[in-house]
Design a protein around this nucleic acid. Sequence first.
DNA 1: TAAGATTGAAACATCAATCTTC
DNA 2: GAAGATTGATGTTTCAATCTTA
Lengths: 153, 153
Amino acid sequence: MAANSPKLTALAQGWCALSLLYERIQAHLERALLAGHDLSVREFSLLTVLSRQYKGPGGHLQMKQVADAVVLSQSATTRLVTRLEERGFLARCFCPTDRRGIYTNVTEKGASALKAARPTHDAALNETLEEARRDPRLKPLVNALEKLGKATS
Amino acid sequence: MAANSPKLTALAQGWCALSLLYERIQAHLERALLAGHDLSVREFSLLTVLSRQYKGPGGHLQMKQVADAVVLSQSATTRLVTRLEERGFLARCFCPTDRRGIYTNVTEKGASALKAARPTHDAALNETLEEARRDPRLKPLVNALEKLGKATS
DNA sequence: TAAGATTGAAACATCAATCTTC
DNA sequence: GAAGATTGATGTTTCAATCTTA
């Protein structure tokens, strides 16, 4: 996004660094996942979210909630799910309590695709962060990111 | 992007938090800038980058360098510049030393649009960060972001 | 009437091909 | 031939409109 200028506020600088880091990671992951598994980051993210669902009441997400989780519009989510359904990774089913709603399950095929892709994803993430740590503008952010993971996990 | 699960690696968790924060800020800024000034975040970013150019040797960016700065492909940058040129915010001119290259200058109109939009931008940024600080997953990241700005400015 | 999911139209992104200049 | 900018083809995203169910 670009860097230093005398009048840039401190926050704006931080935002630039965040953007830069985000976009680098995103681009790197996208490349790695597409090349190795024909999955975009969004698709990976969707599979991840949906595979965390559990059977039983409250365990499933409706389209709208999925949209929130992957930060997409409802219509984009519909299409994303459709694409992955056509590839056999997902299956829609009706929501038993509200027939307006639609649930989506990850198929066996989808689950194994996700499982296969995860090491690629994690490795690419590691690489990018390793590299970002060498950039003085990004280092503090990378450190915070790592601490964050440790604190919550 | 979504959150906790037993098997999520620490880094992946951090990445989820980063994505979430980035996408929230991005969405908030986009909304504010479009509503108030009919500018997308990308357009704002482009104007910011180009307005930092200075007269004299080495002070101007070629299309390709601009593309890197705003993290877009070359062709997308061409079209972005064209759109803003049509609105009278930018003007292309030939690069004197290499006739393949093209420089882009910010017009008076473009400069005043940018100037008018900056307070909106900064205010929206502040708001979103303020809000994000209340989310325990994001707080450490926000703190790092603020320190970052202070350290470099 | 409102809420959830979908579809249609338009905007904007990427990759590959092209055109000009080095 | 290689590099910089552009154009063409294609895919994804958003907003608005539509359809079904609550």
